[in-house]
Design a protein around this nucleic acid. Structure first.
Lengths: 159, 159
DNA sequence: AATAATAGTTATACTTTTGTAACCATTTTC
DNA sequence: GAAAATGGTTACAAAAGTATAACTATTATT
């Protein structure tokens, strides 16, 4: 019972549309209750953890947000000492952002906190289903990362 | 290279935390640009499509939103003729909500619209990866539905 | 029959997200 | 070297999500 390409795409879209609100509700709520950061700022941190060093413009490009919003997020993160600004030696207009040691450390702790309920629920699953879910979520993550990054990076190229 | 239960849970949490912002950015933006509805209202419709008939309180319970928000969402959806109110014959306090024919029809069209970009990206994947992603996203959806519903339904029981 | 509990609405306020216009500093282009 | 383009900030405004208190109508409790 293999499906056609079109059927698979439709089914995937259905699944992602169903997954989205479940994650959104739970994770957003947890972020609000467990941290002083808003979800958007946490996305910025996650992006910085992945890419190590990004300029303001690059952050905005990768997260599809206009520059003024990036400034606002970074201002908050700097006030919390989670990131720092670094002047670019080659271009004095550019300000590069990176996580501080505290930022990296706090990010891990925050992740633990905000997913605690989810973790409790997951722990009720038996080993086989967990293993299965682990592999499946990994695949979804990897493929989405690939196609979403490709999409967002249009125009975000490093010159 | 099988993982321990705890390792699997951690890895799943990591994956879900990574999937969330990718879906959030893309789907939320598409909802905003392609429809007159806000994301929250669309979640309500999705829930109604699944459960057919829900009271105001049940909707709030399943989507973890307080009753005043439900009223606001339903008011908008009724103005758009996508849902209708039905008085409960057994309890005149209760107002049940269900999708109209237009609501069901529009929902399908909206889903097509807001996922068009995603669909284009997905179509670039080869058949094997699509099949793989279909199965994986289905598993993630099913398991999340199971554990999240269980979670949210605490206190939402049908009496 | 009086009281408590439930279902839903109205009103209000706050935060987050999103969008946009105007601006300064620096670099690139011609 | 003047003009245009780029990187970033400031300021303002609108939409959406979130939270809560107070209220009406109906049903359940005793």
């Amino acid at each position: 019972m293999t499906k056609s390409k079109g059927e698979n795409v439709n089914s995937i879209v259905e699944n992602l549309l169903s997954i989205h609100p479940m994650l959104s509700k739970n994770i957003s709520r947890a972020i609000r209750s467990k941290t002083n950061l808003n979800p958007g700022s946490l996305f910025v941190i996650g992006m910085l953890k992945k890419h190590k060093l990004l300029s303001m413009t690059e952050i905005g490009c990768k997260l599809s947000m206009p520059k003024p919003h990036v400034t606002a997020h970074i201002d908050k993160l700097i006030a919390a000492k989670l990131v720092e600004r670094l002047n670019d030696p080659n271009d004095r207009r550019i300000i590069n952002i990176q996580l501080t040691a505290k930022g990296l450390q706090d990010f891990e702790a925050i992740k633990k906190d905000i997913t605690e309920e989810l973790r409790i629920q997951l722990n009720k699953l038996d080993e086989n289903r967990l293993q299965n879910l682990q592999e499946s979520s990994q695949i979804v993550r990897d493929v989405l990362t690939e196609i979403v990054i490709d999409n967002v990076d249009q125009g975000c190229a490093k010159k």
